[in-house]
Design a protein around this nucleic acid. Structure first.
Lengths: 234, 234
DNA sequence: ATGTTATTCGAACGAACGTTCGGTAAATCA
DNA sequence: TGATTTACCGAACGTTCGTTCGAATAACAT
């Protein structure tokens, strides 16, 4: 009721109008918990994520989703109000989850550099574990308009803020001078670009990738990587 | 004839079929040179670039382009065969131009680090001077299919190769060990991400940005930036 | 068994999509 | 001058789009 914003036109129940449909509970939408309805919606969102990932939001059609889920076109709309809401739910869930995970991983970790490392590790790990959702999140950045767009942008600003704070802690601790804004945005660029090139066959796992990117970002290529052992490939 | 691939269905001229339309000459498409027709096409491409930039390729309609150019829907098709070809021409021209410019700027520059710096400067400068085209190039990366897609991907591979070579020269010169592939792709990520955040009001001009990003990439934030003078902002 | 609510559907709606057809003017060539 | 080519357009073509309607079934409570 609060989150979704029902689009139903009128229907005061007394006049025999149909009751408002597709009112999602405010629940979490992960696969396990929630009402059966929420669990079913979560499954639909998984399929939608994969389709948006493959064809882009505009390029994907509700008929694609119907085919993928095995449900009828009309049946889908029992679970959400519009295609746009689908994208909103996906982006919101993805963003919320990565931020929760970050807060957990940051808790208890001391030392500004290590905390930045944790941020990088978390972002890279989540990115690789949820490539489809993360591409939909970053690629369809400007797609949502109005209220839904504003909500997603608000979460994004929060996430940016967390990283900027980590960076400024690092500056205070080391006395170094650089533009925090530019550092954060460069870091985001490095990581968020992954979806355009990552190949699990040739590029390592999340841990390796995060360490390498952390090294590039924190030490710079000209200080090189402390030649630990196998950096392998090229 | 060679580039564009006419889609005309048959029409052997003798049977009264219409001659093949929209056969672009192989010319350069920049505004100044070429036949009047090519110049007119270039203008259309400029409008198309702005529209794809605003609404994305799938989200943009030929009617949007018709409105923007002031030409009729049918009239547009005198200059190109399809919407897809529009995107192809834009991407090809953009990619070709940035590579030409890079080769010019690299010529005569010695020293592996400076050559990497030139690469960064060129990419950032071109990016900011042609933000719309560069977004269309990077954002619509997977949009083109088949032959046209393969051609663009081939140019992209060339561009990547040039940068990788620069990076490997740097490695040979310094004896440092890092993954060249990862370094190049991280660098691309840093720079190509610019279009999602750049604000000319708060972020500096191309030269400043390129220097800062070069510093982050080459020296790493932990070695700081040689506090030259005004880094200002944050 | 009966009434109620939760799901799902076939069929269609109007709008928008990329593209094409037959044609008209204007420019160019002979 | 007349013939041909170039540049452009109104009107439509067939398709696909997101969404909705009324009804049918399934699940569940009483």
């Amino acid at each position: 009721m609060s989150l979704v914003g029902v689009t139903a036109r009128s229907s005061p129940a007394s006049l025999g109008g149909r009751r408002p449909r597709h009112v999602t509970s405010g629940r979490d939408l992960t696969d396990d918990r929630g009402t059966p309805r929420d669990r079913r919606l979560a499954k639909v969102l998984e399929h939608a994520t994969r389709i948006f990932w493959e064809k882009g939001y505009e390029g994907a059609s509700m008929r694609d989703l119907s085919r993928a889920t095995g449900m009828s076109l009309a049946g889908l709309y029992y679970y959400f109000a519009s295609k746009e809401e689908l994208l909103y739910l996906i982006q919101k869930h993805t963003f919320t989850t990565i931020m929760e995970q970050l807060r957990e991983r940051l808790a208890g970790v001391e030392g500004p550099e290590e905390r930045v490392r944790v941020f990088i590790r978390n972002h890279v790990a989540y990115f690789l574990a949820n490539q489809e959702a993360m591409k939909v999140l970053t690629h369809e950045d400007e797609t949502l308009k109005n209220v839904r767009g504003a909500q997603i942008r608000a979460i994004k600003r929060q996430y940016y803020r967390i990283c900027l704070d980590l960076m400024e802690d690092l500056q205070r601790a080391t006395g170094l001078q650089f533009s925090g804004r530019l550092a954060v945005l460069s870091l985001f660029g490095m990581i968020n670009w992954i979806y355009t090139w990552h190949n699990p066959r040739v590029d390592g796992d999340a841990e390796t990738l995060a360490r390498q990117m952390g090294d590039i970002f924190l030490r710079g290529v000209l200080r090189g990587v402390k030649a630990k052992t196998a950096k392998a490939k090229s």
